[in-house]
Design a binder for these strands. Structure first.
Lengths: 351, 351
DNA sequence: GCCCCTAACTAAATCGATACAGAATCGTTC
DNA sequence: GAACGATTCTGTATCGATTTAGTTAGGGGC
């Protein structure tokens, strides 16, 4: 209502003839002053329209803001819409909410180009799936030691929350290969060092296995392939840069339009979004799933289980990942690497 | 890396033998000092691991934080998962992102119980669907004048962003009634002044029509009903307190379990979530849609259009609502009430 | 060589609170 | 009534930057 120059704690103190300390205490530590004075202060505050201690000043003085930031690899818009990312956010939000903290969303992209340090208002950072490349290596030393948790990637010196990507992708690939497909193929997600939205040639440099989840998933796929007598080096791979239909579709279209004797009859996909896009485009082309083409995903998003055929995939509990990361950042859980179990889902896209 | 006591701008200035003003300028106004000095400062900053100006201190001094808060009526967890709310967020995020702002998520519930003013760190507030009841009337005077935009409800003195709820619900109801159902019913969403998750009796007090969108929707339904010769007072109504399957299901179960001659053969629902729950539960009971039961929704969420039968509903562009609200808060659009158009979708649940 | 103007830099006030150490007040107890 | 401890309250340094007004240095014109 009143847009008049905001009144400050000090002015309120002068008005009442008490010290600023008492006014501060009236709001923050009721036990430090008499109930009578406290009430007088609170009444006068209400009368003058004092909004309570200014959060900016308080956070400067105390060093804490009760804000936890989630730094997202992709744009905010993407992350809010992406099923997996929003599950993570939901888990984080649940814990923060319960402990009186609020959630600040930062996109890794923007983060990079912005004025350095613009983000340091939060008490802690949950970094989700940021590539270790990018600006992160420059940017991260800015953050203190105990205020960062990595999710779905590894970062030297900070705790990370993962699922067991390698065993999980091994398991799903092993299951898929048990049907003895002739021409398996792999569709990766953000696996190459440099952006690449196409087939991966032999000379393409990949991200290191010990830092990124997608590389771990590939290791699992390869292990299963080898076990079944395939030479992983000869199994065709494609790379997708962004986990959206729009970005996936062209690459997948090319795969499906290969001549019959070159087109894979099994596609191991690194995300459900990719797998669902394969499914949609395959159906459009009149390919039968799973007869002509078997498909597996990774994530276990709801959308994959609604429609028929249901996706064969690995379910990971992203909500729980978010909860754990949030608890770590709030100091409610030990700050140590965590690896969550996954669950194989047998759908109809690869029975 | 270094968890050592963070270095400050002042210490950096002392180290370099220059004034704090120059260091500040080196980061904020390159044109205010010689390139040579600037480079020297930046190098030394990097060497000492100075993270750039502290955001807390800066925001206190400048009065701006480049943070915009979205205050959500429900819990954060709910809002992130809810299709409509997350569309809104996505629109907000898109604009904020493009203009170098970040997004803080606050839940209206928490907001109420927390220390007053705890939220005032943001430069502006987009309040989404908060009930005018609750604590809002107490809490809001805390906020300044030009830093608030209401979405999907009205608040004296602040601009609001809506869709044309009354005409839209009139249109969908009119369409539904053209099939001449015998026993129409209405399932409302958060319409009663006091919580009520059951049938609404004649003595229940409803929220005022001029402030809440659900009440406007009811007005539209009633107008269509009257036009078709029904007395709105005799048309049964139920109320749902939270737009989730779990909360909807019991109430809807009761409706569907009514004896055949009492069970509505048309249910006008105030959200797609409600309508989809009706659809699911009706199918479970072996009711035929639309033969035994016609259903209409409101929102136009994707989920309603994937499955068969597709939902007959009204599509509102929540992403655009978010964009507009964000532009208003950033001062990129005039601060005035906006009413967005909707689109009637003819699905199979009420052909 | 002198004056003046611009560019480069600095000193110090300020943003709005919190929290420490210490002062005043009060009621007990001996 | 003096001594004492607990309670209540105050004065002031401090958090880490930004910004205004002002000072110094450098360069051009005559």
């Amino acid at each position: 209502m009143s847009s008049s120059p905001r009144i400050t704690l000090k002015e309120l103190a002068v008005e009442l003839g008490v010290s600023t300390a008492s006014v501060s205490n009236a709001f923050n530590r009721p036990d430090q002053l008499s109930p009578k004075l406290r009430e007088r202060i609170l009444n006068e505050a209400k009368r003058l329209g004092y909004r309570g201690p200014d959060a900016k000043a308080r956070s400067l003085r105390t060093g804490r803001s009760r804000i936890i930031a989630v730094v997202l690899a992709e744009s905010l818009t993407y992350s809010i819409n992406d099923a997996v990312a929003s599950e993570l956010l939901s888990g984080v939000a649940e814990v923060l909410d319960a402990h009186g903290h609020t959630l600040l969303l930062l996109s890794g992209r923007q983060h990079a180009s912005q004025v350095p340090g613009s983000s340091s208002i939060a008490d802690g950072y949950i970094v989700y799936g940021l590539m270790p490349s990018l600006m992160m290596l420059d940017e991260l030393p800015r953050l203190g030691e105990r205020q960062l948790v990595a999710v779905d990637f590894d970062l030297e010196g900070y705790p990370a929350v993962h699922v067991d990507n390698e065993p999980a992708s091994y398991a799903v690939a092993r299951h898929a290969l048990s049907a003895r497909p002739k021409r398996p193929g792999i569709i990766n997600l953000r696996l190459t060092k440099h952006p690449c939205n196409a087939r991966i040639g032999p000379d393409q440099e990949l991200l290191p296995a010990d830092r990124t989840i997608t590389r771990s998933r590939l290791v699992g796929f390869h292990r299963a392939l080898e076990e079944q007598g395939f030479d992983p080096a000869t199994v065709p791979m494609w790379n997708i840069e962004e986990n959206t239909f729009e970005v996936c579709a062209p690459v997948i279209g090319e795969i499906l339009d290969l001549p019959d004797d070159e087109r894979p009859d099994l596609l191991l996909c690194m995300s459900d979004r990719i797998a669902l896009t394969v499914l949609t485009l395959a159906e459009q082309r009149g390919l039968r799933v799973p007869e002509d083409l078997r498909i597996t995903g990774f994530d276990g998003i709801a959308e994959g289980q609604y429609r028929a055929p249901r996706l064969t995939t690995v379910r990971q509990d992203s909500v729980e990942k978010g909860r754990i990361a949030a608890r770590m950042i709030l100091g409610l859980a030990p700050r140590e690497d965590r690896q969550l179990p996954t669950e194989l889902i047998f759908g109809e896209t690869c029975p």
